[in-house]
Amino acid sequence: MKQMELMAWQLIKEQLMADILTDSVKDGDRLESERTMMRRFGVTRDTLRRAFEELRNEGLIYSVPASGHYVAKNKNIRNLRDLQSLTEWSLDRDIHLETKILTKQVIEADKGLTKRLHLTLGSPVFYLQRLRILDGRLSLIENSYISLTRFPGIGSINLESESLYQSMEEMGAHFSYGEEEISVTHLTQEEADLFELPADSPAFFLRSIVYDTAGEPLEYLYSVHPYKFQAFRYDSEDDDE
């Protein structure tokens, strides 16, 4: 089998990806000027720009006209395996988490909620919509639905300062496992205004149900995350763990 020849732009793209991966250029660093790189790689500006375009598409760099190309690493990488609350996650990483409640009300379970939370029609459900702000930047809008029959005290807790999961655990919930669906959505005008992004910008849409050890649903939630600063990780356990 003959070896495949890589195009010049591919070689440059991979070299720059390696530089970013190994941290020889760091988040926010400006890359060498196009002129310098043209000399270093011995290629034309068009070839170089093709490589930059590819890196930009994958969110590894961003370009500022008349200034240059900058390294952009994904900052919020959440591992989905462990069912770790955002509170724990941000504590682990020394990231400052601030929570603002946008909506907090009691609603009646509709058909969709009766299925997701194993309730009967019209049962009282606690609905909570929160803005989660990481290191000063609004990072996601989270919508939670919890059965008030099961957690009657949930409405009286200050959920701007207390962790929702911790409060539920104190009320006897044993978090065990969950299912999540990740897709792409486009921001509504209202969401876009909150994130200070153009309306219709793409965003992650996550929808999940979390269950307790008995297989009973504890929470149904969905959240919206602008995509530029977000990635999700899933690492399987080692065999011998």
Binding site: D82, L83, S176, Y177, G178, E179, E180, I182, F232, Y234
Partner: peptide, 8 residues
């Protein structure tokens, strides 16, 4: 994309 997760 679907994900299953569990409490470690």
């Amino acid at each position: 994309v679907e994900v299953k997760f569990r409490k470690s």
